[in-house]
């Protein structure tokens, strides 16, 4: 079976700066894949290139059997690739429910579809916040809302950019549980992380990116066993 999402020879620029060099990665259905690497290594840019916010200058991205690397972000999102940015980017002028409404898309065949009730089960903290302005939420709640908003688009695969960044340790644990719950629903999850604990708790496979290139590709067990790789690229 071909992977749900695959990228080959992905290159991307920010203005004049060449950020990604021939990045290749894949994620199968129901798999949690983590991109590890230092800040500025190109993790966020990889996710942005996949969703089309930083259009790749070369390479190809295939999602559910279709080339998406020349599409606009909204077209990619409508094909079932969800994206949760690093800084969450909640619509603070809107209420919590309105935020979720913006993400809503019709159900897709063969893909877990989400309702408000299901989202509230995933993130109980959101349940009683419906008409509150999103601006009043705490950082952890905003991260939950950002994920819930994207899930409302019924994605087949979700890109999470540093979901644990800036969260208190207790909330990080909650976030890990939510990622595993998404996986059990059958969702593919591709996330970028710097927090190795978090990555180890949720991921099946890992890619290590450094200076815009993929340096390691293997299962979490392989990464765990490979001290050389970890000390060379993650410096933990």
């Amino acid at each position: 079976m071909p992977p749900m999402l695959s990228a080959k020879r992905l290159n991307a620029y920010y203005g004049q700066a060449h950020i990604l060099f021939d990045v290749a990665l894949e994620a199968a259905a129901g798999e949690v894949v983590v991109l590890l690497g230092r800040n500025g290594a190109g993790k966020s840019t990889t996710l942005k290139a996949l969703i089309g916010l930083v259009p790749p200058s070369a390479g190809e991205v295939v999602f559910c059997g279709e080339r998406i690397d020349r599409l606009q972000p909204f077209q990619i999102a409508r094909r079932g690739l969800g994206y949760v940015p690093e800084d969450r980017r909640i619509f603070t002028d809107l209420t919590v429910l309105e935020n979720i409404e913006v993400g809503r898309q019709p159900a897709r065949q063969g893909v877990p579809s989400w309702t408000l009730e299901k989202l509230y089960k995933l993130f109980p903290n959101l349940a009683e916040t419906g008409d509150r302005p999103a601006a009043q939420m705490s950082g952890g709640e905003q991260q939950m809302l950002a994920i819930a908003r994207t899930l409302m688009g019924n994605p087949a695969c979700i890109l999470l950019d540093e979901p644990s960044e800036g969260l208190a340790p207790v909330i990080v644990d909650q976030m890990a549980a939510a990622v595993l719950e998404m996986k059990s629903e059958g969702l593919s999850v591709l996330l970028s992380e710097q927090n190795l604990h978090f990555a180890a708790a949720v991921a099946d496979r890992a890619y290590i990116i450094e200076k815009g290139r993929v340096r390691f590709n293997g299962t979490m067990a392989e990464l765990d066993a490979d001290d050389a790789v970890r000390s060379a690229h993650l410096a933990v």
Binding site: I51, G52, L53, Q72, P73, F74, A77, R78, Y83, P85, R89, F91, T92, D93, L94, E98, N99, E101, V102, G103, Q105, R149, T150, G153
Partner: peptide, 24 residues
């Protein structure tokens, strides 16, 4: 719904696009 999308795009059009809103 159209109004909600307009208000969302007013605040962050790029994010609205990444959520499947055709901002064009």
């Amino acid at each position: 719904r159209w109004g909600t999308l307009v208000r969302a795009a007013t605040q962050d059009r790029e994010m609205a696009g990444a959520l499947g809103v055709n901002q064009k």
